[in-house]
Computed example of a mutant assay.
Amino acid sequence: MAEEPKSLKSVFEAAEQKRLALEGAFESSSPSYREDLAFALKSYQECLQIIDRISLFSSNEGLEDISTSDLPYMLVHYRIAELLQRVSTSSPQERKASLDTTRQAYERFLHLLDNYSILSASDRKLFAKYNDDPSSFSTISTKDPTARRNAKIANFKAEKELKQKLAYMRQSPRYLEDGGDEEAVRELHLANIAFCVHMTFQGLEGINREMEVLAQAPIPLIPPATTVEEDERRRRESLGNNDYSERLDGSLQRLQSNFKGPLLSQDGKPLRPFTLTANRQELQQGVFRPGHNLPTMSIDEYLEEERRRGNIIEGGGEASMRQPEPNEDDMEKADEETMKARYWDEFKEENPRGSGNTLNRG
């Protein structure tokens, strides 16, 4: 019995349920999160197939030709791009491919809205600016730091106002799809589309910034898809199984073959390594000598040579505090010390303490 084809509404609702569940999930690396993400992407892709099969949207129609219940299906490309941003990758190349797919989904979403003239005047200008140079697109064109800051604040305020408007409309019974006013429900869907357009331009700008970072990432030497075992097997095949060896040094026969034959070719080109020496006797004497230079003098001789050169400072330290003992037999030295002490006493009598201080006298 053939399986009954699914309706667009049922597939879209299943995808929306998974998407809303993913928004509240925190463990993005868990297997269940990846399974739900894959299921949501698959469901949205199935929605696109159904939309193409039934020709739900046409370039010959306008916004007034689309029924209110079909407006949410215009967000399928945006939802796919939104989910692709959450796909985890293991290499910069995979991330670049994922971002390219995300960019294409954003572009299809904007082209669909542009065909139905749903984009506002400001959004049409941004879309035209993006089409001129997609890789360098930015919602802030100026390089002035103050102007860029003000533009970012304006974007944040616009996003906040759209969120508040959607939250208010969804809480009001007038905008409920079941039992609500059709015009109000249509207004809610259009407001949601306007919010998604705003986030699309923010997402395209974020893709360009991330692409700039990924362009500076180093290219791995081994392709990510290959394993160490595959690389080892490929290397063995390139070297050949007959001559392959795990040894870092060559075989003895190969080493000996390098030292046979002529030293120079007929053109004077060296054919094997050699060493230039003054004579054969010097080479023989240097075979068993140590690898380091032996001392040429003793420590005492070295210190004596340094003292002769003046590189050793004598005196100072405790030696400078030691006073030589006076020699009692040296009368000249004793008289000299006596005259020095007498002269000092006379100087102190002629110049009493404080006599030179004339500033602090009362």
Rank of each mutant, 00 (worst) to 15 (best):
L264W: 14
D335P: 02
E304A: 11
K6H: 05
S30N: 10
L176A: 13
E183N: 13
R289S: 12
P326Q: 13
Y168C: 10
Y116C: 02
E237T: 13
L112Y: 01
E229Q: 15
F26A: 15
S58C: 08
A128D: 15
P31K: 13
A319C: 00
K260T: 14
I50T: 07
A184V: 01
G268I: 00
R235Q: 11
E332S: 15
E161N: 09
H111N: 08
A14G: 08
D231S: 11
S55P: 01
R149F: 07
A147R: 03
L188G: 02
V228F: 08
E246D: 15
T142D: 14
H111V: 13
Y168F: 13
L41Y: 09
R236L: 05
P31W: 09
D123Q: 15
D100S: 08
E23V: 02
Q104P: 01
E306N: 13
G356N: 12
Q216W: 00
G316L: 05
E182F: 02
E16Y: 00
Y73P: 04
A121N: 12
E161H: 07
H189G: 01
P145H: 07
R233D: 13
N192S: 14
T296L: 04
G250F: 00
D52F: 04
L37K: 09
M1I: 07
S88V: 04
N155H: 04
T101H: 09
A278H: 14
A154D: 11
P92C: 05
N242V: 09
Y116D: 02
R247P: 01
G24D: 09
F12A: 03
V87M: 02
D178F: 06
I193A: 00
G179K: 07
M1A: 05
Q45S: 14
R254E: 07
E46N: 10
T275H: 11
L248Y: 13
H111R: 06
E187F: 06
S58N: 12
N155T: 03
W344T: 10
G286V: 02
Q256V: 07
K165R: 06
Q104Y: 02
T296K: 09
M1E: 00
E212M: 07
S58D: 11
H77P: 02
I51H: 08
L176G: 09
R209W: 06
N351S: 03
A167K: 15
T227V: 06
L83K: 08
A147I: 00
S69A: 09
P31E: 08
R79N: 14
L20W: 03
T227H: 06
E210N: 13
S120C: 07
R234F: 01
V11R: 14
K157T: 09
K348R: 13
I51F: 03
L204I: 10
A167V: 07
S135A: 12
V87K: 07
F137L: 08
Y302W: 12
L283G: 06
E187H: 11
Y78N: 04
Y302T: 15
E332T: 15
L248P: 03
A341H: 11
K125R: 11
R289Q: 14
T101F: 02
T338N: 00
E187M: 11
L204G: 03
K157A: 08
G362Y: 09
G316M: 07
E182C: 01
Q164Y: 08
E306S: 13
Y33C: 05
K269Y: 03
A158H: 00
E107F: 06
